[in-house]
């Protein structure tokens, strides 16, 4: 539309006419009064400048420039207002595009942080559930794993408890570093001979426990013998003065079978523990009898 220096509408095309009656009760909604204060810079130059009018309904953008009034028989100059929202739309699109890029960047950063947190959580979980010396599972984690297995419908299984024989003597003779070396190497062997569904744990100073899933008493007994053979293999250790020596420990085992010996971890553990001590006593008696002969 064309406006005179005083703000009178000299010409308005169809779209501009629609704007001029778009306000309440067919008024311009304050459009012309809002434009008039901005006419000064427009009328002083033929340069096209942006002009924004803010109404209650929102902002209206124009490109505005000076036009000689003589072309339409008007005294003085006129202001041509060209309603072109393409620049606004372009800028809004760019803003949106930048916001999307920013959101993507933040999302990637959050995913990265989430992955780092997951990795850290896994590391912490390993620290909490793993015995640092032997890399075997902790007693608490063993209880959790067995409980979960029983609740998930396991039909059979066996809980084995093992106690090292002669471990205290090794500590007393060679020191705790020797004892640690025994535990570390025993732990390594137990891990190597573990099935994927089994759980091998260190539950005390020189006490170990195993959950063997889907086995009966006969198989559990065979497994216990195999584990004993691994534990009783000599452990190579270098003394403080550089001498290499072999350390040997024995193992007493107690086996509790599910469901015959108990319906939960606590019950199975009590049975396995008791049988382990029976086995230890029997082995000690046998050893003493052999020594006397």
């Amino acid at each position: 539309m064309l406006l005179s220096e005083q703000g009178d509408v000299v010409y308005a095309n169809e779209r501009a006419q629609a704007l001029l009656i778009a306000g309440p009760e067919g008024t311009d909604g304050g459009l012309i009064p809002a434009i008039i204060p901005q006419l000064g810079p427009v009328l002083r130059s033929s340069v096209t400048i942006p002009l924004r009018v803010t109404l209650k309904t929102g902002s209206v953008w124009f490109k505005a420039w000076r036009v000689a009034g003589g072309s339409l028989g008007v005294d003085g100059a006129m202001a041509m207002l060209f309603g072109d929202s393409s620049g606004v739309l372009r800028s809004r699109f760019m803003v949106l595009r930048n916001e999307v890029a920013n959101i993507e960047h933040l999302r990637a950063r959050d995913l990265n942080v989430a992955q780092q947190l997951r990795t850290e959580a896994q590391h912490l979980r390993r620290l909490v559930t793993t015995d640092q010396l032997t890399s075997l599972t902790t007693g608490q984690e063993l209880r959790r794993s067995v409980t979960k297995a029983l609740q998930s419908g396991t039909k059979t299984g066996a809980l084995l408890f093992a106690d090292l024989d002669g471990f205290k003597e090794i500590n007393d003779t060679h020191g705790h570093s020797a004892g640690d070396a025994v535990l570390e190497q025993v732990g390594q062997r137990l891990l190597e001979h573990k099935r994927s569904d089994d759980v091998s744990a260190r539950v005390g100073g020189d006490e170990f426990a195993f959950w063997i899933a889907d086995v009966d008493a006969a198989i559990a007994t065979r497994i216990a013998h195999r584990l004993r053979r691994q534990i009783e293999r000599p452990v190579s250790w270098r003394t403080s003065d550089g001498q290499r020596t072999e350390l040997v420990v024995g193992a007493s085992f107690g086996i509790a079978c599910y469901p015959q010996d108990g319906a939960d971890y606590a019950a199975l553990a009590d049975v396995a523990d008791a049988r382990m001590y029976t086995n230890k006593r029997d082995r000690k008696a046998l050893h003493s009898h052999s020594a006397r002969r």
Binding site: V47, T48, P50, K63, G87
Partner: peptide
């Protein structure tokens, strides 16, 4: 210029220059 185009950008610069 990138966001709103050369012509419109020139208009803004013109306002400042004025």
């Amino acid at each position: 210029e990138e966001v709103i185009g050369l012509e419109d950008a020139a208009g803004f610069v013109a306002m400042v220059g004025n």
